[in-house]
Amino acid sequence: MTGKHAFIAGSLSLCLVDTLGGRGGAGVERLTGPEDLREWLVSAGLAVQPLPAPSDEDVANARALREAIHRCGLAVLAKAPMMAGDLAILNGWSAHPPLRPQFTGQGLTWQAREPVKAALSTLAADAIETLAPPKAARIRVCPECRMMFLDNSRAGRRQWCSSATGCGNRAKVRSHRARISRSSNGGSP
């Protein structure tokens, strides 16, 4: 986690998808305005400070890209075709000039003439690579929080967004408590 953002989805494009949390319920918007987008891009390593203030249009574009990636990910999970409009959004952003590596006094940084558009281009390209075989077969959704992630585990059986501190840990605690309750009530373990 960097700042208030968790980067545990296994790909930056899926981390962007997860900027709308709680998809199984009311939803928690984490890109509420230009400052949130700026903070997310810097935390993701897709921009350096001082990043010019993103516009409201940049926020709308980031959200539109995020939702197109999410719908394409759901299509992959359902083994259904991706919608043409979503593919057009991904391909359109991917066609913009991407971020380019530069050496600066801070070391290696990623820069562009239009940094927010370049960051969205980089995210779209990452999404295209993630949604295509062989990575597409590793896309998962956490059964608890509905977070979309790329299963990079060796066995390919990751189920939870986070086993250590997140939903996986909470599920293990519930299971453990249920076993203790059953055994103390005379039930079978």
Score class of each variant (00 low, 15 high):
Lys4Val: 12
Gly21Met: 14
Gly21Cys: 13
Ala26Phe: 10
Arg30Tyr: 05
Gly33Asn: 08
Gly33Arg: 05
Gly33Thr: 06
Glu35Gly: 11
Glu39Tyr: 01
Leu41Asp: 14
Ser43Thr: 09
Ala44Pro: 13
Gly45Ser: 05
Asp56Arg: 13
Asp58Phe: 05
Asp58Asn: 08
Ala60Cys: 03
Asn61Glu: 14
Arg63His: 05
Cys72His: 13
Gly73His: 02
Ala75Val: 07
Ala78Gln: 12
Asp86Ala: 04
Leu87Ala: 07
Leu90Gly: 06
Trp93Arg: 12
Trp93Asn: 05
His96Phe: 09
Pro97Trp: 07
Gly107Asp: 09
Leu108Val: 10
Thr109Met: 05
Glu114Lys: 15
Pro115Val: 08
Lys117Val: 04
Ser121Asn: 06
Ala125Asp: 08
Asp126Ser: 07
Thr130Tyr: 00
Thr130Gly: 03
Thr130Leu: 05
Thr130Met: 04
Ala132Ser: 15
Pro133Gly: 09
Pro134His: 08
Ala136Gly: 02
Ala137Thr: 11
Ala137Tyr: 02
Val141Pro: 05
Pro143Val: 04
Glu144Gln: 12
Cys145Ser: 08
Leu150Lys: 01
Arg154Gln: 13
Ala155Gln: 09
Gly168Trp: 08
Asn169Trp: 12
Val173Ile: 14
Arg174Ile: 11
Arg177Tyr: 13
Arg179Ser: 09
Arg179Tyr: 08
Ile180Lys: 15
Ser183Asn: 12
Asn185Pro: 00
Asn185Tyr: 11
